[in-house]
């Protein structure tokens, strides 16, 4: 009997140990790391063909577009929340930041999400681990996290951010072309991955070394070839110059596919093995889902330009 009881006991002990206090506690400030990358920068992606997906299907993007060089940061999102609150675009109900969403068309398909018009949660301010706080007047960021990607933001919250400034979330196609260029590469920087080129499961980056694992994210643009206190990073820019298109946090995309309404995410996060960081790897969740491993960046339209030619591509 002892042989049976021992593992049962260990298992129960393990379950109890995992049920440790889960109440909200504001994060401690951390050291701010300057990466030298400006999160307000945008880059233009030309219209035209790219190799899409694992099986590299030629796909055409009709119009050129601009996309953020980095993920939206905590600081950017906190500023947006303050502005949006002042403009009456959001409200705070029971510690949840909420805003209106007009809903998605519903076809009654099996397992189709029914997303009706109404107020949706953008962010929950008492979520353990959240880096943005509200003092009753305005929003701010816990010190040191300013240039980390914003997390714990739902698709509704990401979409609202983009729309507030007249932008949008990139479509999956736009995201993928921005990540891998025209040559169908596996990672934004090429074919091989190593621990110091992206924040993923195997990276053991500087933040794990000098703080602890709960930090989970690295500042946007952290992996840019710079040396941080002896930790040498490699440059993870995509062919068009975007940082963190693999690893750090998943990024919401804008597409709403009929008959399902899951929202898709790309890029992989801190918790994932390398195959989740492939430029074609997809993830999805309900639009109300938020996570410490999910962020976003925005895209916007530009005036149509002549289609890129081969020389332009070579120069990228």
């Amino acid at each position: 009997m002892r042989k049976i009881n021992l593992p049962s006991f260990v298992f129960v002990l393990f379950l109890l140990s995992s049920c440790i206090a889960q109440e909200f506690k504001e994060l401690e400030p951390i050291k701010y790391i300057e990466t030298g990358v400006n999160p307000s920068e945008w880059v233009q992606i030309p219209a035209g063909e790219f190799m899409k997906g694992q099986h590299r299907h030629k796909t055409i993007i009709e119009k050129p577009y601009e996309i953020m060089v980095t993920d939206v940061t905590n600081e950017q999102y906190a500023n947006y929340l303050s502005e949006a609150l002042e403009a009456g675009k959001i409200k705070i109900v029971n510690d949840s930041i909420m805003g209106y969403y007009p809903g998605d068309p519903f076809d009654g398909w099996k397992h189709e999400f029914k997303i009706t018009a109404g107020d949706k949660v953008y962010m929950y301010l008492k979520e353990p681990g959240i880096r943005i706080k509200y003092d009753g007047n305005k929003f701010s960021v816990i010190k040191g996290y300013e240039n980390h990607p914003v997390t714990f933001v739902s698709w509704f919250g990401a979409n609202a951010y983009a729309q507030f400034y007249g932008w949008r979330l990139p479509s999956e196609n736009e995201w993928e072309k921005a990540a891998r260029g025209k040559d169908g590469r596996t990672f934004p920087w090429g074919e091989e991955i190593s621990p110091n080129i992206a924040n993923y499961n195997s990276s053991h980056n500087l933040f794990e070394k000098i703080f602890h694992k709960d930090i989970t994210t690295t500042p946007v643009g952290f992996f840019n070839g710079k040396n941080y206190d002896g930790y040498q990073t490699l440059d993870n820019r995509s062919p068009y110059g975007l940082y963190d298109m693999a690893g750090n946090v998943w990024q919401w995309c804008g597409d709403d596919y009929p008959n399902m309404h899951y929202r898709y995410m790309r890029g992989g996060s801190r918790t994932n093995y390398e195959y989740n960081l492939f430029t074609w790897a997809r993830n999805s969740a309900g639009p109300s889902f938020y996570s410490m491993y999910v962020g976003f960046r925005c895209a916007r339209d530009v005036k149509p330009e002549p289609q890129e030619n081969n020389n332009q591509t070579d120069n990228q």
Binding site: S17, S18, C19, I20, Q22, E127, P128, G129, K213, D214, S291, M292, Y293
Partner: peptide, 8 residues
């Protein structure tokens, strides 16, 4: 378990 406390 909340995501933030998942590590253990």
């Amino acid at each position: 378990v909340k995501e933030y406390f998942e590590a253990p």
